[in-house]
């Protein structure tokens, strides 16, 4: 406001006072903000920051037997290894193969799961369905089934001898074989190396589609309904409302859902572990998270807190990079 003429002394005083008031207000606002943030901050430090710092520290150490006799020397000594653990991870073909698998998995599974979740959320949010509560529960219920139970369900559904899907497909195949004269086999080997990733994707989608649907649904419900009224007055149909208002307004929810899915993909663990129990060829290091866990549990070499932490921190960094790339791309495209 005073860029054209030099301010007079009183004017300067006023500006000064305003700036001071502004600063005070800022400080007050900051204090209040931190007040609301403090409970989370304290808990976050206790349960995340401290263990993460411990984890980062141990990633720079290895544990070796204290002595050099057959059974060591009655204990382990921690020795500073600097980046050895990381070099071990980054030079480990198993780690990168696992990472490749989960990324391949994510590239197909995330769009399908989130696309499906968004469609279901839009349908439930439209005005045309009754019994929303029932549908919402049906879609969310798989997330509420404990992992150990879901494991039983899926090993049964995929099991070569028992699979109800294959029993049905088998009957159809027989019928077609009789009809066409040549041998038709439609049955699927869910456990074959070529299909196992799709099998995992099916399990994950089943578990998490309803979860993500709830995220979208909550975001849709937060949209002010007068926007719809205004659009309708302008002659927009329901479809236009979905396309022009609803989908753009859930942009932030989509960003969150995608970020969470990327992280979940890099940390993929439950589904491959379940499948590995009945498919030994997968081993206990099929995905990076399985490698980290086995390393922590001492069922692969090298094991211990150091190597396990190095694997998990490497995973976090890769997930972070992917998340950042996605966030940037989304920012660009919405501009």
């Amino acid at each position: 406001m005073s860029t054209l003429t030099r301010p007079t002394a009183p004017e300067r005083l006023v500006t000064e006072q305003r700036a001071q008031a502004n600063r005070r207000r800022r400080r007050r606002e900051g204090r209040i903000g931190w007040g609301f943030f403090a409970p989370f901050a304290i808990l976050f430090v206790l349960t995340f920051v401290i263990p993460i710092l411990v984890s980062i520290r141990s990633s720079f150490f290895t544990e070796k037997a204290a002595g050099d006799s057959l059974y060591g020397g009655g204990g382990m000594v921690e020795t500073f290894a600097f980046l050895d653990n990381y070099a071990q991870v980054l030079g480990n073909a198993t780690f990168w193969e696992g990472m490749g698998r989960v990324l391949l998995f994510g590239a197909f599974q995330i769009p399908v799961m989130l696309g499906g979740a968004l469609i279901l959320a839009l349908l439930l949010d439209s005005f045309i369905v009754r019994r929303v509560a029932f549908f919402r529960l049906s879609y969310f219920l798989p997330y509420a089934i404990p992992g150990v139970i879901a494991a039983l369900v899926w090993t049964y559904i995929f099991s070569p001898g028992l699979s109800p899907i294959n029993q049905t497909l088998g009957s159809i195949s027989e019928w077609l074989t009789g009809l066409l004269g040549n041998n038709v086999d439609l049955t699927i080997d869910f456990f074959a190396p070529g299909t196992i990733i799709a099998s995992m994707a099916t399990m994950t989608t089943w578990t998490f589609m309803g979860y993500n649907m709830l995220i979208f649904l909550a975001a849709l419900q937060a949209i002010p309904h007068d926007l719809y009224e205004a659009a309708r007055l302008d002659g927009a149909g329901e479809f236009d409302i979905v396309r022009r208002i609803k989908v753009p307004m859930v942009g932030q929810a989509t960003l969150l859902a995608v970020l969470l899915s990327i992280i979940g993909t890099v940390q993929l663990f439950n589904e491959p572990t379940v499948l590995a129990a009945v498919n030994p060829w997968m081993g206990n290091d099929y995905t990076p998270m399985m490698l980290a866990y086995s390393s922590m549990m001492g069922t692969t070499s090298p094991s211990g807190a150091g190597p396990a932490s190095a694997v998990s921190i490497s995973m976090a960094v890769i997930a972070g990079i992917l998340a950042a790339i996605f966030a940037l791309v989304q920012k660009r495209s919405t501009r």
């Binding site: 993460i52 984890s55 970020l259 969470l260 992280i263 980290a292 922590m296 998990s312 976090a316």
Partner: peptide
């Protein structure tokens, strides 16, 4: 408007990125 907001959000994201299972023992 809180001082250090960008840092906070990054820290929370960091918390989301670390596999929880590996933090259980510490």
């Amino acid at each position: 408007r809180m001082p250090g907001k960008a840092g906070i959000q990054l820290a929370i994201l960091g918390g989301l990125l670390m596999p929880i299972a590996l933090l259980t023992v510490p």
